[in-house]
Design a binder for these strands. Sequence first.
DNA 1: CTTTTATGAATGAAGG
DNA 2: CCTTCATTCATAAAAG
Lengths: 213, 213
Amino acid sequence: EGEVRIMEWEKQENQQQQQQQQQQQNGGSLYVQVMTDEQMELLRRQISVYATICEQLVEMHKAITAQQDLAGMRLGNLYCDPLMSSSGHKITARQRWTPTPMQLQILERIFDQGNGTPTKQKIKEITSDLTQHGQISETNVYNWFQNRRARSKRKQLVPASNNPESEVETEVESPKETKAKPEDIHSHENPNPWTEDLSFRSPEISSDLRAFD
Amino acid sequence: EGEVRIMEWEKQENQQQQQQQQQQQNGGSLYVQVMTDEQMELLRRQISVYATICEQLVEMHKAITAQQDLAGMRLGNLYCDPLMSSSGHKITARQRWTPTPMQLQILERIFDQGNGTPTKQKIKEITSDLTQHGQISETNVYNWFQNRRARSKRKQLVPASNNPESEVETEVESPKETKAKPEDIHSHENPNPWTEDLSFRSPEISSDLRAFD
DNA sequence: CTTTTATGAATGAAGG
DNA sequence: CCTTCATTCATAAAAG
């Protein structure tokens, strides 16, 4: 029913008679998802909707704030307040740092650049950069890289964490288990081109949205 | 550079040495896109980012239009419901493992044996045993024990809460510097050049939004 | 069909 | 770096 269920494509894949050979082709270690034209179209449409909505909202915002200015009314950071305005009291405190989407994007980008463990100096830099996108401390950054690396590594070893439909052959472990061919599976260099895709940069729009602050 | 290039995956695919065979396989008539797990996950996240940003923009709009209403101006609450529902908003849907009754029974039994720490080796054993009763991975087993233990522990502590009242204010600042608490308000100076990158639009949505004009 | 609950999975942080 | 724990998120299943 009208939902785009990305993670379930691989399931559907098994039902697409036309693509079955894909499985065997890749043996057990390499695992890929296959999308049909239809699914691709669905995805395309989904993103399109987001793009359109955002664009329209930005336009709308422009118009509205223009009026606001005329009326002498200036809306402040309406959404920021409800959360932390209560300075003294920590009622509903989430004590765990959570990266904002923007911070995450940046961190991922840095991580993908491959320069392994960031030095102390580097962490300082990164931290101060990320501060512009939300609260963050050096410890947060440090931990993030530690975890990111460890889990990235582990993920290679156990890539098939959850795909019920795929490995139906129910056989006992082959000696070497999953991960067998390190260099084939992942091109560490530029795993995919999309990594950079979300590096939003639109000076004009940016300044527009900043008006909310 | 920074763009969402959905329609070009098939092109890039040719450059992914690991997936080349795909081409020949399908001859010339059948054409499919291939993604690795990693790429899939990335995509999922990116769309998630879009969703987040859109939500925030919508929130902004709500707040602003609320003001507008007070001023007697009616911009309408058109976008939220119609759009979000039409696009599903549940873009990120992932499947998840569900233990079969048999597997659950076995797991419970092992857990009750008290051997708290499931060793890696042990997990491998358990997993291969359970495979006979349904699809399962080592990660599933690992997670199950983690969760089982954690929740078993919590159940013991909660029932013994004798002080139903004052627990809210007790939360004094944790001296720990791990306090960086963002609670996402970000998104401000970010972005949005997607509109030009996505060279397609969603007609019906556009018409919905046209009311903004 | 909508809301609630149970629980698999993800992840920030701590310890060694 | 690796493992473990605690907390949170998301979703399948159950309840209304």
